[in-house]
Nucleic acid binder design. Structure first.
Lengths: 313, 313
DNA sequence: CGTGATTACGTTTATCGTAATTATA
DNA sequence: TATAATTACGATAAACGTAATCACG
């Protein structure tokens, strides 16, 4: 049994039983993969993949258990290599952070700025994506750290930690009548055309729920993936904007005014996602702590071990 | 990085940094081990073993982390192989049970008898030892299942499950005056010479505590490792015996009479120990359930995952 | 000096890639 | 017939064992 063989079966299973594709992804030849899989099956005395003739069609029942075990081994092997790099390579390496637009644009910059100044040898890679993409990336190991507000649950391969809570705000062009009202009510808000986030994003589901509870059906005239787009159209007078309070800055956003919507919509918790069981390098802990000061190394380690899932902000 | 290399470093560390010994234990040559360790160190960029010249003198700080990680990988790799055997090999293999005398002699026979009848292809190996030995064997993987009453705690590599509770009894030669008393009191008992288990065995510590609490210092004239020896000397009139109630059988033990000591000494819990995170084959689960019917596959699996440590009998 | 680790070297085995073959959809 | 897996085979490289060398106590 070789680690290589385990990589092969895991990759083949991941790629929908396509040996050729897996071989390419692993930078090796397809016959080699084929042969090693057969050798492993012979050694274990178990057929891992169902075949119809020469095509792989699925995973057998023992195969599922074997692949799950192989994934655990490979994850731990990956940890071991990182461990080596952490001790030897000094403060060099890469850190891949996956985040939504809101986080990347408004929440991360201070932490990133400090981090790159402090760790000049570490290449920081920032990937922007949807919460679902972010979860996938972290789960597959393509990203080290994921940051998003929604949809990080229901991924058994992830552990998540609360970063901070935030609420929405309403933005309007200066002089808009709704700015007279204080506080703004949900009924008043529903009378105007609205511009807000796309479903599946940045607390949008909480916005929907608030209107539904009151039996209101506001007219959402435009949905966007990020607050910058929303602001643009609010300035154009297309409607009122509902965005994350993090995304509004009175100085930069001249021509717009904001009112808190804290009392209207449930508050949201930004969460940080890590692959369960992963080993983190020193600078990764450092990044996390810069971004969320209450998440020191001990707090993160406790959750990674699976010990204290129920961490409270 | 190869699995073999991980085996080498783990074995060398286990054998007190003796490469020659480790090589012999792994049925390979010493230069091979030496070379592979160096290759691994080069690949990881980390020295794992401290050396003074050519001698290995200890494990470096990164080495400790690496060896711990390697042990996790090897355990999981072992699980994977067992998994293969479990699916392919049908109902064949070996099952090594480590138990104390009391368990092996009085508690295990029914389960063993059923098990060997049901699984003719499985070679059952029974190792008798002290509780500390048993814990070591299970932790090192030399035994699959450990059964003892004491000293299975404080082994972080083990998980334990309660099997059953039992109490002690007092045995005396037929006609002995203490048999008139009912129930027997601790003060009365302390007036006679006593014969019981060696320290570190079968609930002996509970016996000591009971006397100490009352400020009594009974005269223990003989300590033995098992109830059979104790019985022999009780018959010879050397003193009263305090043994596990499991070990007394009125029919077989003619010439002796027993009185319950349930009210005198704290009750003991026989526990079953498994290596943390291990994969168990079907017949291993079957053995456990035959020995302790309340421990079905699900209950054992839950504890093995580390999920529900606090299992209550 | 004896024990124990490294170096040197030849043998063997395993791995990998290319090319040819076979089976499936 | 095109796609995809297996078989065959040759080149390369890795692992292993023996023998010789070197270092510590």
């Amino acid at each position: 049994m070789k680690l290589q063989q385990l990589r092969y079966i895991v990759e083949v299973a991941r790629r929908g039983m396509n040996v050729s594709e897996a071989a390419e992804a692993l930078y090796t030849s397809q016959p080699g993969v084929s042969k090693q899989i057969k050798l492993l099956e012979d050694e274990l005395g178990v057929t891992i993949f169902e075949r119809s003739g020469k095509r792989f069609t699925g995973v057998t029942e023992p195969g599922r258990a074997i692949i799950a075990s192989a994934e655990r081994i490979l994850l731990e092997a990956e940890n071991l290599k990182r461990l080596g790099r952490d001790f030897s390579g000094g403060d060099t390496g890469t850190l891949t952070v996956a985040a939504t637009h809101t986080q990347a644009r408004y929440a991360l910059p201070p932490a990133v700025k400090e981090f790159v100044a402090q760790h000049p040898g570490v290449q920081l890679i920032l990937h922007q994506g949807t919460p679902a993409q972010i979860a996938d990336w972290v789960e597959k190991g393509d990203a080290d750290i994921g940051i998003a507000t929604e949809a990080l649950d229901n991924h058994p391969g992830l552990v998540t930690l609360p970063v901070r809570q935030w609420s929405h705000c309403i933005i309007a062009p200066a002089g808009h009548p709704i700015l007279q009202q204080s506080p703004v009510s949900l009924h008043e808000l529903a009378r105007w055309p609205l511009i807000t986030y796309d479903a599946a994003f940045t607390g949008r589901s909480g916005i929907n729920r608030a209107f539904e509870r009151q039996g209101l059906a506001p007219q959402v005239v435009l949905t966007a993936l990020d607050a910058d787009v929303i602001k643009t159209y609010v300035i154009l007078g297309l409607g009122l904007g509902i965005i994350s309070a993090l995304a509004f800055d009175p100085e930069r956003d001249a021509g717009l005014e904001a009112r808190s919507a804290e009392h209207l919509f449930e508050s949201n918790t930004t969460r940080l996602a890590l692959r369960r069981g992963v080993f983190l390098r020193r600078y990764e802990y450092d990044f996390i702590t810069r971004f969320a000061p209450h998440l020191d190394r001990r707090a993160v380690e406790r959750v990674l071990q699976g010990g204290g899932e129920a961490y409270q902000l």
